[in-house]
Write a protein that binds this DNA or RNA. Sequence first.
DNA 1: GTAATAAGTTAGATACGGCTAATAAATTTA
DNA 2: TAAATTTATTAGCCGTATCTAACTTATTAC
Lengths: 218, 218
Amino acid sequence: MNSLVEENYLKAMFTLSNDSGEVNVNDLSKHLDIKMPSVTSMMKKLASKNLVHYESYKPLRLSKNGKKEAALIIRKHRLTEMFLVEKMGFGWEQVHEIAEQVEHIKSPDFFAKMDKLLDYPQFDPHGSPIPDQNGNIVWKEYSKLSECQQGDSVKMAAVINSSDEFLKFLNSREIHLGLKMKIEFVEQFDNTMIVSYDKRSSESLSSKVCERLLVEKE
Amino acid sequence: MNSLVEENYLKAMFTLSNDSGEVNVNDLSKHLDIKMPSVTSMMKKLASKNLVHYESYKPLRLSKNGKKEAALIIRKHRLTEMFLVEKMGFGWEQVHEIAEQVEHIKSPDFFAKMDKLLDYPQFDPHGSPIPDQNGNIVWKEYSKLSECQQGDSVKMAAVINSSDEFLKFLNSREIHLGLKMKIEFVEQFDNTMIVSYDKRSSESLSSKVCERLLVEKE
DNA sequence: GTAATAAGTTAGATACGGCTAATAAATTTA
DNA sequence: TAAATTTATTAGCCGTATCTAACTTATTAC
């Protein structure tokens, strides 16, 4: 059984891993707001538990097992977020903090019940995939809105790096998952997009916003 | 902000306090399964935080503040138990363990939402009162079933010291809160009671069982 | 009322998960 | 490629919450 602290390291490593599965001590340190020497010593501990591959001065990698453990924590996090939104009436901008705590609860029954009550959801309220009971994740290939063309019709699929403020911004524009929008115009100078959708006919979205929105092309 | 460990001490003290509000180091130690010296040192810490009145070799007492903190943790525990039973479909014998973990979650919103969804319940699934937001508890005066007389008609109101096994025993006899039963006969020799209720016409309950059932006389 | 027992405290150790300061290795810059 | 910078590690310390062993105070039994 891993401690709460160990779980947080595993989760952070999972999130920060690049495509070859590598993480730096420095990035991990910044992400967790824990100094580098503490990270190093935890890496040694996790290595001794076969959750991490560790060699001095080399990039860190989660072991197969570590990856699974991490995915299962993320599963609990995302199931919780979905439960908070769907069954308890929270807004998608309110659930991260709570899920951050609930994800550490040790009770398979508790999460199995959530899963069932939600009818085995595939995605969380921000469009991120929920890993299955074995820790496997199905990634859908979405496009960044910023990569779409003028004239494209798209459907909102997920938000990247969903922070409180960003989600509140989206709320204020009445943008939510599943929303269909049309790209009316792309400003060449700064890549600002003018989009229209049911409730708004010419909303302007900065490139910073468009890079954080994942969409499905229609 | 109190640590999870501190919260557990406060809760234990609250539960173990006798009518004059006193607890022994020894009882606390046994209840928490933590050795006495550890308890003593935590008591000093809690005393320095004005949560406990502590004097060497004297019985321990929660301060006014400590009592409130404890009651608020118990509030979270009991709200959670109610939520698990009413909104998630758990049995009353399954909820204690989960609530033991959920009660430590720091999020007023989370518990406020539960409270609202449950329509501000007064009692948990075992009939124990749920403290209000200020930590105040309204105690109802119930009688132990064991103190009732032959011929009395009573309504099941609460269970004392509800353990897994006891609750499962009650399940097996189809006994639940709100159940109305009549005391048909009391065996003088060992105080076993023969009771009848809707689904059973002459169920025999040992004195050990009867002492753990609280009822309302009709 | 004294001896035996139980309850409580002190002292000192341990594991965990942090930290700073100093050092070493790797990477970037010039 | 040598110097400067960044990244990572080592060594040693700290606070929390636990423990055991030894000691003290309170209670119980005779």
